[in-house]
Structures are given as structure tokens and as C-alpha cells.
Write a protein that binds this DNA or RNA. Structure first.
Length: 459
RNA sequence: GUAGGUAUAGCUCAGUUGGUUAGAGCAUCGGUUUGUGGUACCGAGGGUCGUGGGUUCGAGUCCCAUUACUUACCCCA
């Protein structure tokens, strides 16, 4: 059998893991610097927890888990009927699938908050670093299994949380040295637009269409709007939005004209102005993008998206926003939350393309020193030495095979990028002086055990 | 779901208008070197050319089907 792994999944070797962990560690550190606490939730959720939260398209991409032991089901006729119905249309049958792999970390978080509401003191700031699964068709930068690193605050309406997240985004990408543009918008603006042009039912179609502006252009957007049944009159009213150019202030002015006289519009503009006036990103380029919509259904206020600002591969590497009533579905109302999600797999891809991982990352050995030997006796001596070094906190290993060939042992150390090799033969044992070779410099020196330990601690 | 591309050694790929025994680099193993790697030289193993059918005296090469992978669209981290 030829081994393989499912489409859209990947194995990670030691070098990749080192780079991935570099990103994970950096993000985790920042999450904690901002006061977020870690939680984890199961890979699978009850399917009813997930469906209906991501929009029509999103729901289709949920990985469903077939119920176990369906061959033992008591009512097979019912199963057959359910299966046939499932062939007819996109629906979910709990007789067939009652669990699904999580699609994101936000919805499971909302579920967690509702279930643990009596043990949580609000506002609750949590971070979560776990894989999610999407039954998408894989392509460049798109995987079926990938990690999200989420930071959310729930139980606070304050826009200070948005400011906090902007700082977190700014600081995180600064530390990773990834040049980014942080785009933001407000769903209230989008709602107000739908209101103003009298197409409140088409809010999703409208947002999705204008989201594509930079891809398909003004004409493309208009065409799509018409296809979705938006009236000509409404499309005409939308034109200023699609045509304007200018800086953040100019955009606000346009919004003011377009939706400033509606209540939601006014509120949305207020929020946007607050963020523009009070956020202080030093690294990320902050840009109000009034065509930014984001597909997920649950956002109601501020929305965020981050893209790399260099190179040719610039997918969205972070997304987020405010959701006012995600917990409401689970029975806990008046619980507004806001959060962001770093897509570390894409951040990795972007960093790889821009070649901005620090030089040593991916090339460093976690082993500091390897012991080379000549026979079983000298090998045993190495094992004792290694125990002594490990007690002092020095990562070391003994070449596992008994071989007389030093070359082979050095080759192993070299390929593993182990910086030091200590050769232990009978001469060394008798003298109590060991040959320590610096693999990079190629220099060798004789040291006794305590000097060896001291040297390795200092280098 | 829609549209393209690719499929030859463990990996990355050559392979001419269809023509003898299908090649290279890397990797692996061995040797040059029985106490020294990263750089040198020599050698070895490893392929049903994705699968099935067709055209032909002859197919890795042309045609059809099929499967897998991949890219773009949709959507998204």
C-alpha cells in the first residue's frame, strides 16, 4: 500500500515545526502580555452547535462525522430514508451525523462561555490555539486542516477592547517582522447601507458583492448585484461607495453623506471614528476599507482583516470582529464579544515567501552536544557522562549504534546541526580529558568534565 | 460545484518528428580514509513510465477513458 494523507492535510518535519513553534510561541507570549487566558475545546462539537453560524457557504464546508455503528441502528428504514433525503438536498440528519469537526474557534468559544457562565467572571479574555477543519477545495494557502490562534474578549461592549486588539495585532506582526495592512470596517455601516437603499433582505449579497471590489472592479460588482436581484435604483445609490478614493478621513466623510442620517449608520461612523482617533499602531498600516464585509454571519460591529503588505502571496492572514449576540443562540443574551483569529499556516507561508524567519530558526539543533565513541565500553562511559550533563540542564545525546567509524558519527551530528561533538576513547577515559569539537569552527580542545560543563553552559 | 495544468527512481525533474538496454541531480548504502563531519573522488541498490483501453511493425512519447495531485473561480485563515 502506498502511504498517503488526506487531501489538504500536511505532515510537518522538525525544521518546519521549529518555524511553526516560533510563530506559536511569539503569539502566545503576546496573548498573555495582553491578559488573555488559555482554554481548549474539543475537536468535535455537536453538529447543531456549529450549523447556521457561518452563512450558507460556510455551513457546507463543515466536516461532518458519520455516526458510529450505524449498522447496529434499530430503525434501518428510518436511516435509509434520512440518507435518501440527504441525497436530495443539503440538510443535516442527526440520525446520520450528530457530530462535526470545529470550523472555527469563535463558535465553540461562545458555546463554552454559555456552558461555563457561572464560573467565568466577565469580561472574559481568552486565547485559544487549536486546529480547525474546513471541507474546502485545497489550493495555495488553503488547507483543510489548519491552526487558528484566537484572542477574544466577551462580556464587554467597550471599544477599548477593539483598541486592545489593534495593539495586539500591531505588536504581534511587528515581532514576527511581517509587514501588514490592517483593514477594518463596521457591519453597522453595511446594515445602514442596505437600509438606505431599501434592500435590507439583501444585506449579505450586497456585502459579499462589494467585498470583491478590488478583485472584479466596479462593473463586476454591479453585475453581481443585479444578478442577485438588487434593484437598479439601489445599485445607483451604491455607486459613490464603489467610486470614492482618498484617505481614511475622506472615506468617513463619504459614509457620513451616504448613511449619516440613519441611526445605525451614525453609530457605525462613531465607532469607526473612535478607532481612528484612539488607536496607535506603530507598525501595521491601518486602513478603513468600506468594502470589507467578511463572510461569517455572526459579526455585527467592527470587522478586521489583515493581509501581508509585501510580496506576491497576500492572502488574508487574520480575521475578526465584534459579535453582539453569538451566545444568544445558546441562551445567554446581552453578551457582546470581539475577537481576532491569526491564521498561522498562512503567516508561515507569507514569512517563507518573504524569507523573514530569523536565520537560525529551522536550522538550530535542540541537542547541544553529541558523544562519539568506539565500542560498547566507551559508549557506556558516554552514557554516564550524558546523564551528568543532563543533570546540569545540557541537552545531549549519545550516538546510539556501536560503530568504530567516527566519520559516520560526525556525519550524524553534522546533519542534525548539533554544535558540539565530544569524542570519548580509552585514552580520554584514562586521562579524564575529553576531546570537544566545535562543529562550526572546526576547532578541538581537551577538557575535563567540570570544564566541559562550564564551557557548554557558556556557549 | 465550474475551468485549466500535471502524473517517469524515495525526492526534484530530463527524455528530440513515435525507434536499441528509460537518464541526471539530490537522498540512501558502500569504498577512497580501522580517531574526526560539513567541501573531493569512485561505486552500488532503487522504475509494470498513475491505471485501463486504443492507434501502430513499434508507445514514456499520439488518441480515449479513469483516478490522484495541483492551480484559478466561488468562499475563506
Amino acid at each position: 500500500m502506498k502511504p498517503s494523507i488526506p487531501k489538504g492535510t500536511r505532515d510537518f518535519g522538525p525544521a518546519e515545526m521549529q518555524k511553526r513553534q516560533y510563530i506559536f510561541n511569539s503569539l502566545r507570549l503576546n496573548f498573555e502580555l495582553f491578559g488573555y487566558q488559555p482554554i481548549e475545546t474539543p475537536s468535535m462539537e455537536n453538529i447543531s452547535t456549529l450549523t447556521g453560524k457561518y452563512g450558507e457557504e460556510g455551513d457546507q464546508l463543515i466536516f461532518k462525522i458519520l455516526n458510529s455503528r450505524i449498522h447496529e441502528h434499530k430503525n434501518k428504514e428510518l436511516l435509509k430514508k434520512e440518507f435518501e433525503l440527504s441525497l436530495e438536498s443539503s440538510r443535516n440528519s442527526e440520525e446520520l451525523t450528530e457530530k462535526a469537526l470545529r470550523y472555527d474557534l469563535t463558535v465553540p468559544f461562545a458555546r463554552y462561555v454559555v456552558m461555563n457562565q457561572h464560573n467565568i467572571s466577565f469580561p472574559f479574555k481568552r486565547y485559544q490555539i487549536q486546529p480547525v477543519w474546513r471541507a474546502d477545495r485545497p489550493q495555495k494557502g488553503r488547507y483543510r486542516e489548519f491552526y487558528q490562534c484566537d484572542a477574544d474578549v466577551i462580556g464587554s461592549n467597550s471599544l477599548v477592547n477593539e483598541l486592545d486588539l489593534i495593539s495586539l495585532i500591531d505588536k504581534s506582526f511587528k515581532e514576527l517582522n511581517v509587514p501588514v495592512v490592517l483593514k477594518f470596517n463596521n457591519r453597522k455601516i453595511l446594515s445602514a447601507i442596505a437600509e438606505v437603499i431599501n434592500e435590507p433582505d439583501k444585506i449579505i449579497d450586497i456585502t459579499v458583492a462589494i467585498d470583491k471590489l478590488d478583485k472584479i472592479g466596479k462593473e463586476g460588482v454591479n453585475k453581481e448585484l443585479a444578478e442577485k436581484g438588487v434593484s437598479d435604483d439601489a445599485i445607483k445609490k451604491l455607486q459613490p461607495l464603489l467610486e470614492f478614493k482618498g484617505d481614511n478621513r475622506a472615506k468617513v466623510a463619504i459614509l457620513q453623506q451616504l448613511v449619516g442620517n440613519t441611526e445605525t449608520g451614525k453609530k457605525g461612523i462613531e465607532e469607526i471614528e473612535y478607532l481612528l482617533n484612539n488607536s496607535t499602531p506603530h507598525f501595521a498600516k491601518m486602513e478603513l476599507d468600506i468594502t470589507l464585509a467578511r463572510g461569517l454571519n455572526y459579526y455585527t460591529g467592527t470587522i478586521f482583516e489583515v493581509k501581508a503588505n509585501a510580496g506576491t502571496f497576500t492572502p488574508s492572514i487574520l480575521g475578526g470582529g465584534r459579535y453582539d449576540d453569538l451566545t444568544g443562540i445558546f441562551g445567554l443574551v446581552n453578551m457582546s464579544g470581539v475577537g481576532i483569529s491569526f491564521g498561522i499556516d498562512r503567516i508561515y507561508d507569507v514569512m517563507e515567501e518573504l524569507n523573514i524567519f530569523p536565520e537560525q530558526i529551522g536550522k538550530m539543533s535542540t541537542t547541544k552536544i553529541m558523544f562519539a565513541h568506539f565500542d560498547e565500553e566507551t559508549q557506556m562511559h558516554c552514557i554516564k557522562l550524558s546523564a551528568e550533563l543532563r543533570d546540569k540542564g545540557i541537552a545531549c545525546e549519545v550516538y546510539p549504534d556501536a560503530t568504530k567509524k567516527l566519520g559516520k558519527q560526525f556525519d550524524y551530528a553534522n546533519k542534525k546541526n548539533i554544535p558540539f561533538v565530544c569524542t570519548v576513547g580509552s585514552n580520554e577515559i584514562t586521562a579524564g580529558m575529553y576531546a570537544l569539537k566545535d562543529m562550526q569552527k572546526g576547532q578541538q580542545q581537551q577538557l575535563n568534565v567540570s570544564d566541559l560543563i562550564q564551557f557548554l553552559k557558556n556557549n
